[in-house]
Amino acid sequence: MRGNPILWLSDRLVEIAGLVLLAMMLHVCADVAMKYLFNDPIEGTLEVVSYYYMVGSVFLPIALVELRRGSVAVDLFFNMMPARLKLVCVGAVLLASALVYGGLADVTWHDALKAFAKREVVMGPIDVVIWPSRFALPASFALGALVCLWHLGRLLFGGAAARAELISTHEELEEV
């Protein structure tokens, strides 16, 4: 999987999401400390948590989740299907997922551009610029769509090994 820019990028986005979570933890702790030690909370914490940390940690990992096919799905009926039907089913699912992510990417991209054009802010006790966080959505959704298409390509042209991998589920339970 080395050298594939889609995979590399998916991985980086999760790293960023992890850092966002770390920043959220530290920022909120600092706010608590400032509030009670110095009676001087960090202004805009609520806005930054909502518009940056939440948005970053939810959307950025989407591509890697798709890459590992880690979304929550129902395996029950799928596992009863014959192998050929499984292949058709996975193909259809990947195509549908790519369409949904693609549509979301398109609509949120235009929204991000609009937000950028008006330099969108949100007004709390202080004003917080929020338009940059809007771009996390189209980036994440587009990469999610690409990952689904990449899987689809592997399903169609990737040979038996790729196919076997794509129709396997977490049937074999991990040990702790």
Binding site: M24, S50, V55, S57, V58, F59, V107, I130
Partner: peptide, 26 residues
């Protein structure tokens, strides 16, 4: 329909009320 797709993802996620979830997960 496009209007809904546009409104929900960002606004649904960008709220304080859910922010306890990632922190407790962490």
């Amino acid at each position: 329909a496009w209007g809904l797709v546009r409104a929900v993802p960002y606004e649904f996620i960008a709220t304080w009320s859910f922010s306890a979830v990632p922190m407790f997960l962490l």
